[in-house]
């Protein structure tokens, strides 16, 4: 199955969205470096849902817009995007950085969503675990950290000048939002209990980036959340175990 691309004009910028499948709407907020990616995981979800993946501004081909100065701006951007989708609630899924954004939205306007799925989300900081500093890492080190089986050397396309610049841009935007406090939001910790939603937390069992124990923090604050660990996967189970991860999501949403 292939996704079609369509653009939304919003807040003075063009937001590229990928869309595929039919059914109830499922909006996917992508991980930090996953702008524009549509893979096996998305295909499986699109067999049962209308899957929409909007690109975070400043995380894809486009420069960070001047108005994007921190997480509150990104949250307001998505509130406007929600308005474009109309009043009917939909399912929301967020991966890693996208999981953080999804949780902020769920705490702010829980009534807009039918359910919430978070895969290895950033956003809460477990004081017991040291979160490795991904800003000091090159791409190869980041792959080592986030994947259980990093598959060999980086391809030539990944080390091209264009790709290096794109990644530099993404990292700069991520820094603007999550340099300090580091990839979390102390306010989210205080207000997450407002996200009164059915929630599924998915965590790769071998996640070395955001420790699986962090799930306890989420479960403590979200009474209607359940945790499902995905075996044989690092920080991105949707990449390393797409069948198993999609199955867990589909079962939960059924």
């Amino acid at each position: 199955m292939s996704a079609e691309r369509h653009d939304l004009e919003i807040n003075g910028i063009t937001v590229p969205c990928l869309r595929g499948g039919e059914g109830q709407r499922l909006v996917v907020l992508h991980a930090e470096f996953a702008a524009g990616a549509w893979g096996r995981f998305h295909d499986l979800l699109a067999e049962r849902f209308e899957v929409i993946v909007p690109e975070h501004p400043g995380f894809g081909r486009l420069e960070r817009p001047d108005w994007l100065d921190g997480m509150p701006d990104l949250v307001h951007h998505y509130l406007e995007l929600l308005d474009r989708f109309g009043p009917a609630p939909f399912h929301l899924l967020g991966e890693s950085f996208g999981g953080w954004v999804a949780a902020e939205l769920a705490a702010l306007v829980p009534e807009r969503f039918r359910s919430l799925v978070l895969i290895g989300p950033m956003g809460l900081r477990d004081q017991r675990a040291r979160t490795p500093d991904i800003f000091v890492m090159n791409q190869s080190q980041y792959r080592q950290l986030t994947l259980l089986r990093p598959d060999g050397e980086s391809s030539a396309a990944e080390t091209s000048r264009q790709e290096l610049e794109r990644r530099a841009r993404v990292k700069a935007t991520l820094a603007r939002i999550g340099w300090n406090p580091y990839l979390h939001d102390p306010r989210l910790r205080r207000w997450l209990h407002r996200a009164r939603l059915r929630c599924l937390l998915l965590w790769g069992q071998a996640d070395q980036f955001i420790a699986p124990e962090t799930a306890e923090l989420w479960l403590k604050r979200m009474p209607d959340a359940r945790l499902r660990a995905i075996e044989q996967a690092g920080h991105f189970p949707q990449l390393e175990q797409p069948e198993e991860t999609a199955k867990a999501v589909l079962e939960f949403l059924a």
Partner: peptide, 15 residues
Amino acid sequence: EMLLPPGYMSAASMG
């Protein structure tokens, strides 16, 4: 990566 952290330079200067 430590010498040139994210956003320290414009994409052009980074080149």
